[in-house]
């Protein structure tokens, strides 16, 4: 196990890594920069740590085995990515995936080509005969609208006249008494009309 040689002489030495990482707290930057300008040991350490840090960051970022992921390819997210329609997490996923997946980079390139081709299609003018035909249709449509408007006007006037001078109708709750009287009259004429048989005590014939 490696042993760390702790330099007790420089309390600032421990800030060197944080300085390299841009992680100093407010107010510490001046202290470190001033100290590095004065201390040869800390300058030497600064350069050594800079090399180590750089070496650590050259470690290749390995690809995760596919079986560990639920769905390893973005698929339809690629088109949405081209159109800028992804949310943050989806965007991060697509970006990180494209970083290592050649197949998806190729698919993205093809989709982009297709999208560009579609968007570069010129806006065409309709042929002349279609223009003439369209004008005729427009004229006929206008004349039909005028006829319909006239019909609607006449109907509205007729309704108004009928409402003012037509027969009055009584409104209100449905009056059941006449219906009941009619029913009673019908029962008195035809006793078989009632579907519920009359009560007959036991032992008596109807």
């Amino acid at each position: 196990m490696a042993r760390v040689k702790q330099s007790r002489s420089c309390e600032t030495a421990e800030l060197v890594s944080a300085y390299l990482d841009g992680q100093l707290l407010p107010g510490e930057l001046d202290t470190v920069v001033t100290h590095l300008g004065e201390c040869a040991d800390c300058i030497a350490e600064f350069h050594q740590l800079k090399e180590v840090r750089a070496a650590l960051r050259t470690l290749p970022f390995l690809e995760i085995p596919e079986h560990l992921l639920p769905d390893t390819h973005p698929g339809e997210l690629l088109s949405a990515y081209l159109d800028g329609q992804l949310d943050t997490s989806e965007h991060d996923f697509v970006i990180s995936h494209l970083d290592f997946c050649t197949d998806c980079r190729l698919e993205l390139h093809e989709l982009d080509s297709a999208r560009t081709a579609i968007r570069s299609l010129p806006g065409l003018e309709p042929p002349e005969f279609l223009t003439v035909h369209r004008e005729r249709i427009e004229r006929e449509r206008w004349s039909r609208r005028r006829v319909v408007a006239a019909g609607v006007g006449i109907a509205a006037a007729a309704a108004f006249v009928f409402a003012i001078f037509g027969p009055t109708t009584e409104t209100g709750d449905l009056d059941l008494i006449p219906l009941f009287d009619q029913h009673q009259a019908r029962v008195s004429v035809d006793s078989g009309f009632n579907v519920i048989p009359a009560f007959a005590p036991a032992g008596e014939s109807p």
């Binding site: 490696a2 042993r3 760390v4 040689k5 030495a13 421990e14 800030l15 060197v16 890594s17 944080a18 990482d21 992680q23 350490e45 350069h47 050594q48 740590l49 090399e51 180590v52 840090r53 070496a55 650590l56």
Partner: peptide
Amino acid sequence: VRSRIHRGRKMLRELLTWPV
């Protein structure tokens, strides 16, 4: 964290054999 990163890198420097 700051201390561990610093000391960890210093250890690595001593463990690595390539010249600086």
